[in-house]
Amino acid sequence: MDQSVVGSDAENKLIAILKILSESSEPLGSITIARRLEQDGIFLSERAVRYHLKIADERGYTEPGGRDGRMITPRGRREVKEALAPQHLGFVREKLELMAYHTTFNPEKRTGQLAINTSLISSESFKKALSAMKDAFKASLCVSRLVAVAREGEKLGSVLVPEGKTGLATVCSASINGVLLKAGVPTEFRFGGILEIADFEPRRFVAIIDYAGTSLDPSEQYIRARMTSVGQAARTGSGKILGVFRTLPAPARGVVEERLAMLKRAGIGGVYALGHTSESLYQIPVAMNRIGMVQLGGLNPVAAAVEAGIEIENIAESGLIDFGELKDFSEL
């Protein structure tokens, strides 16, 4: 098949197959794939599915997984994400809202589930990666020091850790917004950005990506583009880190401060600044009767490891994890 024929009927069918594989944590065979395609209104015989899977194998999008089954590869996941991008504008904001809605964590009882990010690291490089992250966690350039680790074949959120990899879960900033939502405070998810800090104090956002206009998580994009200097910021107090901007109803400020204090006692922080009613915050305008809130990106420690030259695949907002499964970074 000519790979340049993007948007062709055959190419669309291949993407549909890859999408189904990307939504499964287990290998799928041609029979199962054909049935799921039929549910989406795409009718392919098992033989036709096998034909497309052969092409997917040749391109490195899939690999054998068990008897007659296929699993999607990281390259295949990227292909699906890029191919479906035009359909997914605003997808990140919707995903964040969903993560917040599904967060059940109770900071008083310290029970329930939190939203996480998942980072896949070569098992051979895992200890080196942890070493590179150490300063960022120590400087609290993170949402929380609480993390979880999974070996190959295990899951973190919705992500199955592939062969040769170790998964690291970090607490996602949407967890904070989920706790606020349960307290009756809705969040407007504005954008993810690069936050410049000096002496550990925020100065300004030097780059922003509006959630409404992207299909890819901003933090993933900034890390991939090597736009951060988290390691330097952790050591010196000055640098460029991952930050996010939200707004909240101004009358809820008291409830917000109360919940943030409860979260902090439970080991979850990551709120850098809370603004005043209708006032700009670090040069970002805020609407009437709302307050701005700057939060740290949950992937900041991982960004420090990437800066150190370690290859890492990040899946932001990858799912939920029970609070009891998390442990302090120092225990790894």
Rank of each mutant, 00 (worst) to 15 (best):
R70T: 00
R70Q: 13
M71F: 10
T73L: 05
T73H: 05
T73Y: 06
P74Q: 06
P74C: 06
P74M: 11
P74R: 11
R75I: 14
R75C: 05
R75L: 11
G76W: 04
G76E: 05
G76S: 08
R77I: 09
R77Q: 08
R77W: 07
R77A: 00
R78V: 10
E79Y: 12
E79F: 12
V80C: 03
V80D: 05
V80W: 04
V80K: 03
K81I: 15
K81M: 11
E82D: 13
E82M: 12
E82A: 03
A83T: 10
L84R: 15
A85M: 07
A85L: 12
P86N: 06
P86F: 07
P86A: 07
Q87M: 13
Q87C: 03
Q87R: 09
Q87N: 10
Q87H: 13
Q87I: 09
H88A: 14
L89A: 10
L89Q: 15
L89W: 01
L89N: 10
G90C: 08
G90M: 09
G90V: 10
G90T: 11
G90K: 11
F91N: 11
F91C: 01
V92W: 01
V92Y: 01
V92A: 02
V92Q: 04
V92C: 03
R93D: 04
R93A: 12
R93Y: 00
R93E: 15
R93S: 09
E94I: 00
E94Q: 15
K95Q: 13
K95M: 09
L96A: 12
L96D: 01
L96G: 03
L96N: 10
E97T: 08
E97V: 07
E97K: 13
E97G: 13
L98S: 14
L98A: 14
L98F: 12
L98G: 08
L98C: 04
L98T: 08
M99G: 10
A100F: 05
Y101D: 10
Y101Q: 14
Y101N: 06
Y101K: 15
H102D: 11
H102F: 14
H102E: 12
H102G: 00
H102Y: 15
T103L: 03
T103W: 06
T103A: 03
T104R: 03
T104I: 03
T104G: 02
T104L: 04
T104C: 02
T104N: 02
F105R: 05
F105W: 03
F105C: 02
N106M: 02
N106Q: 06
N106A: 07
N106P: 02
P107T: 05
P107L: 06
P107D: 11
P107Q: 09
E108A: 12
E108M: 08
K109W: 05
K109T: 15
K109H: 11
K109M: 14
R110S: 08
R110A: 04
R110N: 06
T111V: 11
T111M: 07
T111Y: 02
T111D: 09
G112W: 02
G112C: 02
Q113R: 13
Q113V: 03
Q113N: 14
L114A: 07
L114C: 12
L114I: 15
L114R: 07
L114N: 10
L114G: 07
A115H: 02
A115D: 03
A115R: 04
A115E: 01
I116F: 06
I116A: 04
I116T: 05
I116G: 05
N117K: 07
N117V: 07
